[in-house]
C-alpha cells in the first residue's frame, strides 16, 4: 500500500516538476497530463473510483486538449517554440517563496497531532450513494456549478471569438 503510494507520488512530482522546468511548451503540457493521470491513480489508490475516472475524463481528455490547442494557437514563428525562463531573479525568487511555503506546510504537517489510523479499511462510496448525495443535500451546489459552467462556456466563447465577421468564400 505505502509502496504504491510512494511510486504514485514520485510519478506525480517528477512529471509535474519536469513540466514546470521544460523549455518546450508541448512537452510541458504532455508531462502535465502524466501528472494528472498520476493524480487519478492516487484517487484510485485512496478508493475514490468515481473521482478518479472523472479526473481522467476531464483532465486527460478535456483540459489537456484545450491547453494543447491554446499552445498551438499562440505559437510564434519557430516550430519548436522554446520558452526561456524569464530571468534568474524571478526563478530564484519563485523558488524561495515556494521553499518558504513548503517549509511552513511541512512544519505544520509534522507538528499537528494527526492520529495515524493505518488499520482502517479502504472506505468505498458507491456511485449510487454519490448520486443521492449530489441530488439531496448538495443539490443547490450542483445547480450553481451548472450555472457556472454555462457562464464559463459562454464567457470563453465571447472572449475568444473574433470580432469582425469573416467573409465566406
Amino acid at each position: 500500500m505505502i509502496l504504491a503510494l510512494i511510486i504514485i507520488a514520485l510519478v506525480i512530482l517528477g512529471a509535474s516538476a519536469a513540466a514546470m522546468l521544460s523549455r518546450n511548451l508541448i512537452h510541458s503540457a504532455l508531462l502535465l497530463v502524466v501528472a494528472w493521470a498520476g493524480i487519478a491513480a492516487f484517487y484510485l489508490w485512496a478508493g475514490a473510483e468515481f473521482v478518479a475516472f472523472a479526473q481522467a475524463l476531464i483532465y486527460v481528455g478535456a483540459v489537456s486538449m484545450i491547453v494543447l490547442f491554446a499552445v498551438l494557437l499562440t505559437r510564434q514563428g519557430a516550430t519548436a517554440a522554446p520558452v526561456e525562463f524569464d530571468s534568474w531573479r524571478r526563478a530564484v525568487l519563485g523558488l524561495m517563496v515556494a521553499g518558504g511555503v513548503m517549509g511552513v506546510m511541512f512544519g505544520a504537517i509534522m507538528g499537528s497531532p494527526l492520529d495515524g489510523r493505518i488499520a482502517s479499511p479502504t472506505p468505498t462510496i458507491t456511485v449510487k450513494q454519490l448520486g443521492l448525495l449530489l441530488m439531496g443535500p448538495y443539490a443547490p451546489a450542483l445547480l450553481i456549478v451548472g450555472v457556472l459552467l454555462t457562464v464559463a462556456l459562454l464567457g470563453a466563447i465571447v472572449i475568444a471569438a473574433v470580432d469582425k465577421s469573416e467573409e465566406t468564400p
Partner: peptide
C-alpha cells in the same frame, strides 16, 4: 466496476492525446 461507463469513456478520452502526439 461500479462506475464502468465512466471508466470506458475516460479510457477512450486518452486516444485523442495519442492522435495529437502523432500529429505533432
Amino acid at each position: 466496476l461500479d462506475a464502468a461507463l465512466l471508466y470506458f469513456f475516460a479510457a477512450g478520452a486518452a486516444t485523442e492525446l495519442a492522435i495529437f502526439m502523432a500529429g505533432w
